[in-house]
Each structure stands twice: as C-alpha cells, then as structure tokens.
Amino acid sequence: MNDITDDITEPESWELRLYVAGQTPKSITAFNNLKKLCEEHLAGKYRIEVIDLLKNPQLAKGDQIFAIPTLVRQLPQPLKKIIGDLSNTERVLVGLDLRPLKEK
C-alpha cells in the first residue's frame, strides 16, 4: 500500500481513498489533481490513501470499484465516489460536497 498521509486530526477529518491500477498516466494525473485540490480546500484536515489494485486486487470488491481511477470519500459520511482522472475540478468539488465548505 502506498500510503501518503497528511493527517491532522481536526473535528472534521476527511478520509479519501484513491484506487489505481499501477502507475498509469491517468492514475498519476488523478493523484496530482487530488493532491492539489485537497491542499487548496482541505489543507491540514485530510488523509489520502492510494490503493493499487494490481497489488491488492481483493480490495476492489469491498468498495465496489469497477472504474480506474476511483476516488472514494470514506469520511465524512455519506460515502461518495468520483471516477476519472479528476481533471474537472468543478465536478470533483461538487462530487465531494466541498462547495459549501469553501464558503464557510
């Protein structure tokens, strides 16, 4: 497991999982996009876990992964899934319910 953790425990903590299959261009793009987005909007209160399904194929079942790359928002509830390389920042923010957060 390639764990990259920037974990700061705050009242609101974000747990994100990024499923990839090897170091494909799409996966790398997705990871970079995610990282950038998190730094901008969730600085200091997120944790990203990258799961490479080529190494741990059995993990795909649990989170119902079928597309690669897939970002899963484990916390806060409810569970959200975003598939694709996360290049459309707008859509990712909607998908993660981050918009209202920014306005706070």
């Binding site: 499923y19 299959a21 799409k26 793009t29 997705a30 399904l53 080529l54 194929p57 059995q58 795909a60 079942k61 992964i65 079928f66 597309a67 690669i68 790359p69 897939t70 409810p78 569970l79 959200k80 899934k81 975003i82 598939i83 694709g84 390389d85 996360l86 290049s87 459309n88 859509r91 990712v92 909607v94 998908g95």
Partner: peptide, 20 residues
Amino acid sequence: SEIEETGEYDLEGLFIRLNH
C-alpha cells in the same frame, strides 16, 4: 447517485476484480 464522473477513466477495476 453515488458516482460522479470527472475526466478520463477506464474499467480496469472490473478487469482486476474479475481476474482476481
């Protein structure tokens, strides 16, 4: 309703699951 699509993706996840 749980899924948002942004950008490029493939169904490698499905392949991996099936293969496994």
